Amino acid sequence: MNIVIAVGLFLLGLLQANPGFSQVTPEDIKQDSIHTLELTYSLPQRASSARRILSHPLFIPLALTSYGFVGIENDGLKALNYEFREEVQEHYPNFKTSVDDYLQFSPAVATFALKMAGKESEHAFGSSLRLYVTSGLLMAGSVYALKSITHIQRPDGSTYNSFPSGHTATAFVAAEFMHQEFKNTAPLLSYSGYVAASATGALRMLNNKHYFTDVLTGAGIGILTTKASYWINHHFFEKGKSSN
């Protein structure tokens, strides 16, 4: 029924914009033809621009982070947070686990283990260790600053440092680190870390420690800070070595 109403309104709009089709002049047809041609050529260009934006490496982490920031003040997103929490508490009222405390590091541990086993990757062990540590420091600084500034109470009421989720940010640092190291040598393997990172975020909500926006923002920050670490390494370390 909604589709019918929408189509009806669309047709009504066309009729209002073009009163009396029988009064259309050759000049009107010419202008409409030009407009149609312009639209025909502009639509593929717009679609191409949209595809470029959606496929940009920073689109997903920026979208996740932006959602979280908007959710701090937006009533609709805050209501969605509470709905998620109520659903989780209704179905898993006594859920409690410490698995997330260890799972957050698992992609990084797996990455270093694979490197030690001789799996080909983007960087040598020492360089990758520097990259991971740099990513972690950038993430920790960002998360700590945001927790201090926002001062949002956790769902369980325990403390006022809910936003963003540090566990989730740590997990996605490790997942993005794994992806960056193996994306060219083992593409499927490189994405496996995101499974553990996503599970970490889910467990934080199941443990009643974070809201949905906390987890999404933590994921975005983890990915962004790791990408920043690799950007710094490429522009200041690798280029510096190649120029010497």
Rank of each mutant, 00 (worst) to 15 (best):
G201T: 14
F182H: 11
H210W: 05
S135P: 08
L103E: 03
V215N: 14
Q45R: 13
A202H: 03
Y102T: 00
I60Y: 11
F59R: 00
G222E: 03
S33A: 10
P187A: 03
E27N: 02
P187T: 08
Q104H: 00
L15R: 08
H234I: 02
A113K: 09
L62S: 11
G141P: 06
R46D: 07
L77K: 09
T150L: 10
T225S: 13
A196P: 01
N94P: 01
I72A: 03
T134R: 07
K147Q: 12
I3H: 00
L14G: 13
M205L: 07
L216G: 07
T40A: 14
V7Y: 13
A228N: 04
E120A: 07
F212K: 04
I3P: 02
V70R: 04
T225H: 09
S48L: 11
T170M: 03
K115L: 13
S127R: 13
N81I: 00
Y144Q: 12
Q180Y: 14
P26K: 09
M1K: 07
E87S: 03
A47R: 13
S128P: 02
S42W: 02
V133G: 08
P61E: 05
W231Q: 07
A202E: 02
I53K: 10
L131Q: 09
K30V: 10
V143E: 05
D156E: 05
L9K: 15
H123C: 06
K96G: 04
A124K: 07
D100F: 02
T217L: 03
E86I: 00
H235A: 07
Q180D: 15
L64T: 08
L43Q: 03
K209D: 12
T200Y: 12
K183P: 01
E83P: 00
H151Y: 14
L54S: 11
L216D: 09
G220N: 03
L54D: 15
E73N: 12
L137M: 11
A110K: 06
E181L: 14
I29R: 14
V133S: 08
P93F: 06
Y191G: 00
I53M: 08
D156W: 01
A6N: 15
F69W: 05
P155G: 06
K147V: 08
T200M: 09
A175I: 11
Y160M: 01
L54K: 07
G68E: 08
D156C: 06
L80Y: 08
